[in-house]
Simulated assay, not measured.
Amino acid sequence: METTHLADQPPFPPQQRVRRTGWRALGLPALAAGAGIGAVVLLHFRDPHVEGSYGICPVYGLTGLYCPGCGGMRAVHNLTDGRIMDSLHSNLLAVPLLIAFAVFVGDWAVRAWRGEGPRVPDLPRPLMWTVLALFLVYSVLRNTPWGSWLAPV
């Protein structure tokens, strides 16, 4: 007959993760959506075109160069006013990234309702490096005379 000693047993029984479904599972996706909507509403009512309303971009303040995010808040403000072309002119990347965020949070909410976790895309390395290179080219181009049309307004 085998005996087990208390030292051989784990101090606590293993916890089983309870999967939440339905309304109870929507907490984190709703929090992310609320934060995004809150930021968009703030940018709609407090105009970033007014000098000093949000401060300055640290990259622009230190180097005088536009980073990939410069003009992003103005782009969202223009988008909430229905001025799509002005939004794209302020920051060409802001609108697609805003759409991607909305799609990600929407998909996360649907998956959470079903009791699944968020879908984290498994992007191949060449695609990640390509996206990084595009951001770098965009940053360099918008700081040259040839890409002045990409500079935030």
Rank of each mutant, 00 (worst) to 15 (best):
F101L: 13
G36W: 11
F104A: 15
M73K: 01
L150A: 01
H49W: 05
G147R: 05
P11M: 11
G82P: 02
L6T: 12
I37M: 11
P10W: 11
S139T: 15
L141Q: 04
I37R: 00
L62I: 06
R111W: 09
T63E: 09
V110G: 11
G55R: 01
F12E: 15
G106W: 14
Q9T: 12
P126W: 15
L28N: 11
G82A: 06
I56C: 06
N91W: 10
L127W: 15
L79R: 04
A109F: 11
P14E: 09
H77P: 09
F12S: 14
R111K: 14
L97P: 08
A151N: 03
R125T: 15
G117R: 12
G27H: 10
A75V: 01
G22W: 14
E2A: 13
V153H: 13
T4K: 13
D47W: 02
R24I: 08
A33G: 14
A7Q: 11
D86S: 12
R46A: 10
P96L: 10
P11T: 12
C67S: 03
P13W: 11
E51H: 09
V18F: 12
H5A: 13
V137G: 06
S87V: 00
A109I: 13
A112F: 10
V40S: 04
A94K: 02
R83F: 03
P13V: 12
C70I: 09
G115E: 12
V50Y: 05
G82C: 02
H5S: 14
Y138N: 06
G55N: 04
H77I: 03
W146C: 03
A30V: 11
V110D: 06
H44I: 09
A35P: 00
F101C: 05
R19D: 14
D86F: 09
S148H: 11
L42G: 05
S87W: 01
A39D: 00
G71Q: 03
A133P: 03
P29W: 05
C67T: 02
G38T: 08
T130A: 15
T63S: 02
D47C: 05
M1N: 07
V110S: 08
T21D: 03
V76A: 00
R142N: 00
G52V: 10
H77R: 01
G36P: 07
H77N: 07
I56H: 05
G38N: 06
D122K: 10
G69D: 03
C70W: 00
V18S: 13
V120S: 09
F45G: 10
L98F: 14
F135R: 08
A102Q: 02
G64I: 03
C57F: 00
C57K: 00
Q16R: 15
R125W: 15
A151T: 00
G147P: 09
L123F: 14
C70A: 04
M85C: 02
A35W: 07
V76D: 08
A100E: 08
T80N: 07
R20V: 14
M128N: 13
L88Q: 07
T4Q: 09
N78Y: 00
G82D: 06
E116C: 14
P126C: 14
G36T: 03
S53A: 15
A35M: 15
L6G: 09
L132N: 05
L31M: 12
P68S: 02
V50F: 04
